[in-house]
Nucleic acid binder design. Sequence first.
DNA 1: CCAGAATCTTGACACTTGTCAAGAACGAAT
DNA 2: ATTCGTTCTTGACAAGTGTCAAGATTCTGG
Lengths: 212, 212
Amino acid sequence: MARQVTGAARRVADAAEVLRDEKFNARRIELAEAALETLGELGFARTSLREIAQNSAFTHGVFHYYFSDKLDLICCCVRHYKAKCVTRYDEVVATATSRDELTEGFLAKLAATLQTDARMHRLWYDLRAQAMFEAAFRKDVLEIDKSLEAMIWRIASRYAELGSKRPVSSPAALYALFDGLFQSALLKHLAGDKTAIRELLDEVRRLLPTVC
Amino acid sequence: MARQVTGAARRVADAAEVLRDEKFNARRIELAEAALETLGELGFARTSLREIAQNSAFTHGVFHYYFSDKLDLICCCVRHYKAKCVTRYDEVVATATSRDELTEGFLAKLAATLQTDARMHRLWYDLRAQAMFEAAFRKDVLEIDKSLEAMIWRIASRYAELGSKRPVSSPAALYALFDGLFQSALLKHLAGDKTAIRELLDEVRRLLPTVC
DNA sequence: CCAGAATCTTGACACTTGTCAAGAACGAAT
DNA sequence: ATTCGTTCTTGACAAGTGTCAAGATTCTGG
């Protein structure tokens, strides 16, 4: 009897703890999302916890309460960023029924995110560069890179499949190519080059049939 | 007579000024070179003028004397870096008499610089990312990017020529591909991946005949 | 309703940062 | 050798940084 009671008590205690953890984690993500605003604006180097707090509805102490560390916060931001990014083209891949449809769907999303999420993208490149100096970032960054490579590979595979072909290069090379083009277009776009996005689209449109 | 004298005086004055300017500039480069040591070690974000000074034979005041600004110093570093980087493969391109020779010469240099100059390379990627936030860097960074693209294009053109072919993609796409691969390999290498360099070489060896 | 825990605010700390100014050391021209 | 301009050193300042602790506030289980 006592056994069962303590068992039940433990179960509700556990459930409560899980609930608390979930709430805790949800808060962390809320804070991370707020932090991403400022990080995307100023970059990793110039962003301080106080700046993040001032541009948000939170005080700087909260961040210390939910994150052990500045790096902890940034890592959480990066991981959160990843989750949203990696599925961007999945719907297009799933619904496209022809090569053209896939191409145009992909390019449309590409142009849109380059336009809309430029600040998030530049933050990603910033953090990836930081990972070359700061070991604490490396695990997350390498993981995200792998996810992005897989994302590109899903597009290419589907594109090849729709033409009854096979991609001619490795996932790594394909990702390197698209990532390089994207990064370059992003920089030019941010530098005020109005043609950067169009040129990227043209380049990708030309490239796709030659690699798959 | 007086005319000639003042003319001569002006000439020697001008010469003196040029000399002073040259000396001034040489000193700037000396300082920039010293700064690159620390920048390559810590990255842009974590490097302060004092840190730079402490890791060098100079005091922090000298840097303020020769550079108007921290950004001015960094820009000088970047420009100096550029000059050394862009000619890395020129000798190989000039002397190779066959596709194989060019390939192996290129790959050897590639592996060597990845091994030896890893800290300089990561600084370059750091600064390129910073340029997405800091407008002051953009002009220099875009210019260097163009130079690197041209460098890759010289290699590819020569490689194609040696096989009586033509490169199948644009300079921009080719540079994006190599830059993306290099960046990825650099990150893995810095993360302790012992196979990163070898894998890059294999990938490039495989890729070269398919793009040119 | 109320004690105790969770959450948040506030203010302070030790430290680092870029910048600068006052003056010392140096070199070259007279 | 003296003087004047260049070059460099030193120390200081104000602003901003991450971190943390003490207390206020809110939430929650009993």
